[in-house]
Amino acid sequence: MAAALATFVTRRRPDWDALDALLTRQRAGALKLDELRQLDALYRRAAADLARAQTFYPDTDAHRFLNQLCGRAYAAIYQPPRERWPLVRAFFRRDFPRVLRRELRFVGASAALLCLGALLGALVVLWEPRGAELLVPAPVRQYIAQGRMWTDDILSVAPPNSVSSDIATNNLTVTILTFATGMLFGLGTLFILVNNGVHIGAIGALCIREGMGRGFLDFIAAHGPVELSIIVIAGGAGLMVGQALIDPGELPRGQALSLRGREAVKLVLGCAPFLAFIGAVEGYVSPGDLFPTWAKAGLGLSLGGVFWAYLLRAGRTDADETVVPADSAS
C-alpha cells in the first residue's frame, strides 16, 4: 500500500532538492567530477520516484515537479554529441598556435639541431669531395654528375596528383617518426633531425660545388620553408616527450609523459593539414620548369611567412601569453 503523499514528499524531498541544486551548478559549468557521479545517481532515484508518483499520485504537484525535474536532468546528462567542425575550428584557431607558442624553446632547439646537421653536411662535402660518397645517395650523385637535377624526371614518371600524394605520405611518415622517436628519451628525435639536416646540407653543397646551386634552389624554394618548419615542429614535439622522460620534475614519470605527450600530440596533429597542402605544392609547383625560380621563391617565402604569422598570432590574448605550462606548475 502506498504511503500518504505528504509522507512520500517529506521522505524524498532532500534528494530532489540536491538534484535541483546540482542541475543549477551544471548549467553554470561549475560541477566537479564527484558531483557528476552524484548527479547521475540522484537522477536515477528521481526517475524511480517519478514512476511511483505516476502510479500512486498522478496529477499532483509532486508528480508535475518530478516530471520537470527528471526532464531537466535527462537533458543535462544525455546531451547530444557536440558538432566536430566547431571543435576542429577552435583547435586550429586557438589551441594549436597557443601550444606552439608555449613550447617555442623546444621548437627552437629542434631548428638548431636541423641547422647543425645541415652545416655539418655542407662542410664535409665542400671541404672533402669524397664526403659526398658517404652522405649523398648514389642515384642523386649520378644525376648531378650528368649536370641534371634528380627531380627533372618526376613528372614524366607519374602525374602531379600521384606525385603529391606520395610526397605527402612520405612527409607524414617523417613527421610521425621524428615525433614518435622522442620516446627514446629524445635521442631518436635528435638523430632524425641531425641526419635530415646532414642529408639536406650535403646535397645542397654538392649541387653548389658542381654549379647546380640554382637548380637546387629552384626545386626547394616553393615548398622548403613550410616543409622544413613542419619537420622542426615535429622535432620540438619529440623533444618535449624526451624531456618529460628524462626530467619529469615533481610528477611521476608516467604522469609527466601523459601531460607533456598530450601537448606534443597537438603540435603533430596541427601540422597534418599543412603537410597535405605543401605536398601538393611539392608535386605540382616544385618540379620542372613550368614556374620560374623567382616565382617559386616568392611563393615559398610567402607561404612560410603566412604559416609563421598564423602560428605566432592566431588565438593570441593577454591571458594566453601568461599561461604557465602544466609541467611547471607547483
Rank of each mutant, 00 (worst) to 15 (best):
D327F: 12
I208Y: 15
A158S: 07
T293R: 11
L123N: 10
I220D: 00
A168E: 03
L31G: 09
A47W: 08
G121P: 07
A73H: 06
P225K: 11
A75S: 06
R12M: 06
L269R: 04
Q255D: 15
T181N: 00
L193D: 10
G215K: 14
L120H: 06
C115F: 13
R105E: 07
P137T: 01
L114K: 04
F307H: 11
Y78G: 05
L135F: 08
E210M: 10
R44I: 04
L312R: 10
T24E: 14
S164N: 01
A4N: 15
G204V: 05
N196R: 12
A132D: 02
G298P: 06
F307P: 02
L239K: 08
P325H: 14
D61P: 09
G249F: 15
I203L: 13
D153Y: 09
D95E: 13
A111I: 00
M1H: 10
M149I: 00
A297H: 07
N170Y: 03
S156M: 14
F65D: 04
A145W: 09
V88K: 04
V268N: 03
R25D: 05
S302F: 10
A6C: 08
G254K: 00
D49Q: 14
P129Q: 03
G315L: 09
G186M: 00
P97L: 13
L19V: 06
A122D: 04
Q79R: 13
G201D: 10
D17F: 10
A75E: 06
L275M: 08
R262L: 12
